[in-house]
Write a protein that binds this DNA or RNA. Structure first.
Lengths: 184, 184
DNA sequence: GAGTCTATATATAACAC
DNA sequence: TGTGTTATATATAGACT
């Protein structure tokens, strides 16, 4: 039932308050856990959605102030180096997510091509199916080259001999079903 | 694989650091989400387990300071009323958990007795089984009284008449199987 | 507001790289 | 250290009480 809500301001005040209370509790628990598990100084201040409310000051107003003062007394160098501003945080996050997206896309592409490759091994008339565009064919060719190289290397290993000339007659044993798109 | 780790200081420094990094990331995400979903002012300062590290100051040192100042300017009354100190937080938490424990125990007890009750309806020789102690028998008797009362009420409802004298010959239809221990 | 319930979404511990 | 993976543990949205 926890519909994946979008990460944006909740319009209805009632729902917003409910979510605030639920999540505030969760965050306080997390803070307490981190503090206990790692024995690190932590503090947080959280204002409520209703402006008249007093903020939560965790673990206590005094300690919050102490931590702030402690921070202020750090040498400038340390203060400035790693300041994680909200903006920076977002930028870092975006960068990481985009990087991951790239990796995943690449992986997907590779899986797709590998799947095509294996299908081709089983079905030689794939040319007629009009499902391959130029890019696919190029990647397919590239993958074929890679597979050839792998085969060559494996043969070398099995023979335990110096590299013979590149042309070898290999018996491609058509793989039956691709369990996970990663056969040779 | 996430073995349920105990909520206490992690002894091995390596594991502690790993956990710290993982959880710090999680908490920052939560803070960001709460901030976005509810549009409330939030800030947090988190020092690392290595004393030389600079703390994370979120969302930014300036804003943290502003929030602190804002807080300091609140009228004393508001400042003092709801100060959630770490200790208070723990006390509240303990109180709530204990309360819940109580509720659950009560519920368990009731389920157990109801189960016994239903078994008795099916099997009259339960006296021989030596599985009931005095408390059980007392609770059982109490439950029987309650059930009787429920039956009386239901009969009254069905008759739509003024309450007849308490003695009624009721036909106890022995319930077949207790689906969830909550039959009459 | 606070607690219950339940289906899902997330967080995350331990491990392999 | 950081990432990917996977099996679990938690968090939590939504509907009720």
């Amino acid at each position: 039932m926890p519909k994946k809500i979008k990460l944006e301001l909740i319009p209805e005040m009632a729902a917003r308050k409910a979510t605030f209370n639920r999540r505030k509790k969760g965050i306080m628990k997390k803070l307490h856990e981190l503090h206990t598990l790692c024995d690190v100084p932590i503090c947080a201040v959280i204002y409520g959605p209703c402006k008249e409310e007093e903020p939560i000051v965790w673990p206590s107003p005094l300690e919050v102030e102490n931590m702030i003062n402690l921070y202020k007394n750090l040498p400038e160098i340390q203060q400035c180096r790693k300041k994680v501003t909200h903006e920076e945080y977002l930028k870092q996050r975006i960068a990481r997510v985009e990087e991951k997206l790239k990796r995943v896309r690449k992986k997907n592409r590779k899986l797709k091509i590998t799947k095509l490759f294996n299908e081709c091994l089983k079905n030689k008339d794939f040319h007629d199916q009009n499902i391959l565009d130029v890019t696919d064919l190029k990647d397919l060719s590239k993958l074929a080259d890679e597979k050839m190289k792998l085969i060559d290397e494996r043969i070398e290993t099995l023979m335990g001999n110096p590299p013979p000339p590149p042309q070898i007659g290999t018996s491609r044993s058509a793989a039956a079903g691709e369990p996970n798109g990663e056969e040779i």
